[in-house]
Design a binder for these strands. Structure first.
Length: 516
DNA sequence: GTCGCGTTGTGGCA
DNA sequence: TGCCACAACGCGAC
C-alpha cells in the first residue's frame, strides 16, 4: 500500500522486477559484537527484516509476481547496477531515502542509470512530507523547533492507495539464481536457539493488522498523550509499537496518518500535536527534515545545531550500561528488554539515555544496533535531545533511575519480568536492592554483588557532577563557541563502590565518531 | 533587551 | 491526580 514507486512501475511496463538487495554492511555476522548479529544490526532486527521480506514476497506472489532477493557481495549499488545492465532494464523505480549512506548509495545507481539511458523515478513515500520541500518552504534552512516545523509543513499529501489484483510478471532473470528469502539461521549468526524472540512479527500484513487493532479503540486514539504513557507496561505496551513497521516500510506513515484523522473525525474531541498520536508521526518527519538539512547531524563535530560539550568516556560504565549490569534494576531491565525485544517504550529510552551521562553518543550506537525500529534520523535526533546538545536544553531535568520507574510500577513487575534474579526481592527494595538488609537479600536468593551487581555509579554524585559540567560547557559555548577542553573537574560518573574515587579518565574529550 | 514558551524531572503537598 | 516550588536552559517573537 502507498507505494508510488511500485505503482509507477506496474503502470509503465510489461515486466516488473521487484528487487530487494541484502546488504552485507548490515548483515555480515560479527562474532566480536557484544550480542548476536552483525556489527550494525542485532538479530532481533534482522529477524524482523526477514519476516517482512517473506511477507512481501507472499503478497507479491498473490499478484502473480515475486520478490527477487539479491545478495550484494560488497556494495549494494554494484549489485543493482549489474542487474540493471544484465536484465536490460528501461526504468528504475525506488523510494527515495534521506539517510546519508542511502543518498550516496542511490546516487551511484542513478549516475549509472543516467549514463545508461535508464529512466529513474524516485518518489518520496517514506515520510509524510518531502524534507527538501519543507526546507525550501522555510527559506532554505530546516525548521529547528517542532512548532515551526508543524506550521511550515501543513497537511500531508494523501497516500497512494490504488487497488489492483495483479502485477506484470517478472522478466527473464538470465543466469541469476532465484533464492527464497533466507532464514535467519542461514545468515551465520551462530546458534540462536537460546535467543529470545521478540513479541513483534515483521511484515506488511502484520503492520496493517496491528494498526487496525490500535485504531479500533477510538477513545484511546482520541485521548492519546505520549508523555502520559507508562514505560513499564510490557504485556500491553502503552504505544502502538508501529515504529518498526514504519521503519521498514511495512506501514506507510501517510496511510497511518490519514487513518488517525478518520478516527478523529468520528470523535467529539481529540488531543493535538505534539502529544497526540498524529503528532508522533509529525515528530518523525521533524527529525527526518532536520537530519536531511543538517550536515554532520549524527555527530558533534561540524554539526552547527549541536552544542560542543566535552564528553568523557567511561568504559566501565558504558559496558555495564550496554549489558544491563549497572546495578540499577530499572535501568538494567530496560537494557535487557532492548537486547531481547529490540524495543522499549520511549520514556524508557529517555531514562537509560539520561542515565548514561547526559550525552555520549556511544549509547546512540547501541540503540542503533539493537532497536528493531532503529532509524538514523530519529535515533540521532533523540540522542541530541537527551544529551541537551540540541533541541532541548534543560539539563537540570534529570531522570532518576529509581523514582522515575517506581512512579509507574511501584511493585516492580517490569523489573521482575526482565531480571528474573530479582523476582523475589521485596518491592521496598526492588529499585534499590543494594539497600536491602543481607537477611532480605538471602531470603530473596539474590545477593547484591554476587547474583546482581552493585551500582556502578552513585547517581546523586554523578548527576550533580554532570550538571556542573554541563553548566561549564554551556557557558563556554556562549562565550565563543569553543568547547571546554580542560580537565579541571572530575569524571562525570563516579564509581559507587570505592567511596566516590574518580574513575580514571581514558580520554579527555570524545573522538568524533565515524558515520556508522 | 524582554518575555513567553517548550511532548515526556523531582519532590512535597493538598 | 494535580499543583507548586525548585532552579533554570535556549530560542524566537517582539
Amino acid at each position: 500500500h502507498d507505494n508510488p514507486a511500485l505503482d509507477a512501475a506496474r503502470r509503465s511496463a510489461a515486466r516488473v522486477y521487484p528487487v530487494f538487495v541484502l546488504d552485507p554492511r548490515y548483515l555480515r555476522p560479527d562474532p566480536a559484537a557484544p550480542s548476536p548479529g552483525s556489527a550494525r544490526a542485532g538479530v532481533a532486527r534482522v529477524r524482523f527484516l526477514l519476516e517482512s521480506l517473506r511477507d512481501l514476497d507472499a503478497r507479491l506472489r498473490r499478484l502473480g509476481s515475486r520478490l527477487l532477493v539479491l545478495r550484494a557481495r560488497d556494495d549494494v549499488s554494484d549489485a543493482v547496477c549489474a542487474a540493471l545492465k544484465d536484465w536490460n532494464i528501461g526504468k528504475l523505480c525506488f523510494e527515495s531515502d534521506t539517510e546519508p549512506y542511502a543518498l550516496a548509495r542511490d546516487k551511484r545507481v542513478t549516475d549509472f542509470a543516467a549514463a545508461s539511458g535508464i529512466e529513474v523515478f524516485s518518489p518520496v513515500s517514506h515520510t509524510l512530507f518531502d524534507p527538501a520541500e519543507i526546507i525550501e518552504k522555510n527559506g532554505g534552512r530546516p525548521p529547528l523547533t517542532y512548532q515551526s516545523f508543524v506550521a511550515t509543513a501543513g497537511e500531508p499529501p494523501k497516500p497512494v492507495m490504488e487497488k489492483y489484483s495483479e502485477l506484470p510478471p517478472i522478466g527473464d532473470t538470465g543466469g541469476y539464481e532465484l533464492l527464497p528469502v533466507p532464514k535467519l539461521e542461514e545468515l551465520g549468526y551462530g546458534d540462536l536457539s537460546q535467543e529470545y524472540i521478540p513479541p513483534f512479527r515483521g511484515g506488511e500484513t502484520e503492520a496493517l493488522k496491528r494498526m487496525r487493532e490500535s485504531l479500533q479503540d477510538k477513545e484511546w486514539v482520541a485521548k492519546f498523550e505520549k508523555p502520559k504513557g507508562d514505560p513499564s507496561a510490557f504485556l500491553k505496551p502503552a504505544t502502538t509499537v508501529l515504529s518498526p513497521y514504519l521503519k521498514f516500510g511495512c506501514l506507510s506513515a501517510r496511510y497511518f496518518y490519514h487513518c488517525i484523522q478518520d478516527v478523529y473525525r468520528s470523535t467529539k474531541t481529540h488531543t493535538k500535536p505534539p502529544v497526540s498520536l498524529a503528532g508522533q508521526l509529525l515528530w518523525r518527519d521533524f527529525f527526518y527534515t532536520v537530519s536531511f538539512g543538517t550536515p554532520n547531524f549524527h555527530q558533534m563535530e561540524g554539526n552547527k545545531i549541536c552544542k560542543q560539550i566535552p564528553w568523557r568516556e567511561n568504559g566501565e560504565l558504558f559496558v555495564a550500561w550496554r549489558d544491563g549490569r549497572t546495578g540499577y534494576p530499572w535501568i538494567d531491565a530496560i537494557m535487557i528488554q532492548l537486547r531481547k525485544w529490540g524495543w522499549m517504550h520511549h520514556l524508557a529510552r529517555h531514562s537509560v539515555a539520561c542515565f548514561l551521562t547526559r550525552g555520549d553518543l556511544q549509547g546512540r550506537d547501541v540503540f542503533e544496533r539493537l532497536l528493531i525500529d532503529s532509524d538514523w534520523a530519529i535515533n540521532n535526533g533523540n540522542w541530541l535531545w537527551l544529551s541537551c546538545s540540541s533541541f532541548f536544553y534543560q539539563y537540570h531535568r534529570i531522570y532518576s533511575p529509581i523514582s522515575f520507574g517506581k512512579k509507574y510500577d511501584p511493585n516492580g513487575d517490569y523489573i521482575r519480568h526482565f531480571i528474573p534474579v530479582l523476582k523475589d526481592m521485596p518491592k521496598e527494595y526492588i529499585y534499590e536492592p543494594w539497600t536491602a538488609p543481607l537477611s532480605v537479600q538471602e531470603k530473596a536468593r539474590c545477593i547484591v554483588g554476587k547474583d546482581y551487581p552493585k551500582p556502578v555509579v552513585d547517581h546523586e554524585a554523578a548527576s550533580k557532577e554532570c550538571r556542573k559540567r554541563m553548566e561549564e560547557a554551556y557557558a563556554s559555548n556562549r562565550l565563543g563557541g569553543n568547547p571546554v577542553k580542560g580537565n579541571s573537574s572530575n569524571s562525570s560518573r563516579r564509581k559507587f563502590s570505592d567511596g566516590g574515587q574518580d574513575v580514571p579518565d581514558s580520554s579527555m574529550s570524545k573522538q568524533p565518531r565515524k558515520r556508522s
